[in-house]
Design a protein around this nucleic acid. Sequence first.
DNA 1: ATCGTTCATCGTAAATATACGATAAGGAGG
DNA 2: CCTCCTTATCGTATATTTACGATGAACGAT
Lengths: 104, 104
Amino acid sequence: MNRLKKYEFSADEIELADIAKALSHPARIKILKILSNKNVCMCGDIVELMPLAQATVSQHLKELKRVGLIQGEIEGPKVCYCLDNVKMEKAKESLMKMFKKVCC
Amino acid sequence: MNRLKKYEFSADEIELADIAKALSHPARIKILKILSNKNVCMCGDIVELMPLAQATVSQHLKELKRVGLIQGEIEGPKVCYCLDNVKMEKAKESLMKMFKKVCC
DNA sequence: ATCGTTCATCGTAAATATACGATAAGGAGG
DNA sequence: CCTCCTTATCGTATATTTACGATGAACGAT
C-alpha cells in the first residue's frame, strides 16, 4: 500500500482481509491441504510436493505462520509443521460471519 | 509473480486463491458490507463512505467485479452496484469446502 | 451545443509480493 | 572438530498491488 490507509478501516475488516490474504495464493492453499494429510508435516516433505523452490516454500510457510494458521515445531534438524486447528476454526468463523452479514 | 507458476497448481486451488485475493483488502470487505445495506448502491455513495479517493475505490470495485462478487449496472450518468448473491454463495461454498477438507 | 456530474481509465509513484540462488545457522553423526 | 542435512534468511530481480491526480467518456439538464 502506498500510504498506509489500513487504520481507516475497522479491526474486523482488517483482520478478515489479513486472513484472506494468507489464503490468496494457490501454494498456500496447497500447503494447508498437504498438512491436513497428517502423514506429512516435515518441511522437506512439503517442499517435495510443491512445484516451487525450497526458499519460496519457506516464505509461504512463514506467511501462514504469521497469521497463525500453522505452527512449526523444531525436531532435531527438521521442522514439523502442523495446522493450528483452533486458529483455522476461528478463520472459518470470521469468514462465515462476514458472508452471513453480507448475503448468505 | 515473477515467473508465472500458477499453472502448477490445481484449478480448485487457483480459483480459491483468487476469491481470497478479492477479499484480501479491508476496503473490499467494507464495500461488500456497504452493498449489503441495500439502501446504498450508487458508486458515488460508496465513495463517500470510504476513506479513499474515487479512483482508488473504482479500482477496488473493478477487482470485486473481476471475480464476479459484484455487478455494476449503468443508470444514466450513475452506476448502481450490487452483490451477485449467487457468486457470493459459491464463494462461501468453495471456502467452506476447503475448510472442511482441511480441518473443520 | 455547452456545462456539470458521475465514474472509469490512464499515468505514475511507492509499497508489497513472489520467486530463486546463495548463504547462514543449527543439529546429527562420523 | 568436521561434514552433511535441513531449513530460515539474505540479496535481488521482477511482477503486482495500492493509491491518487488528471483526464476522458457518457449522460442529463440547461
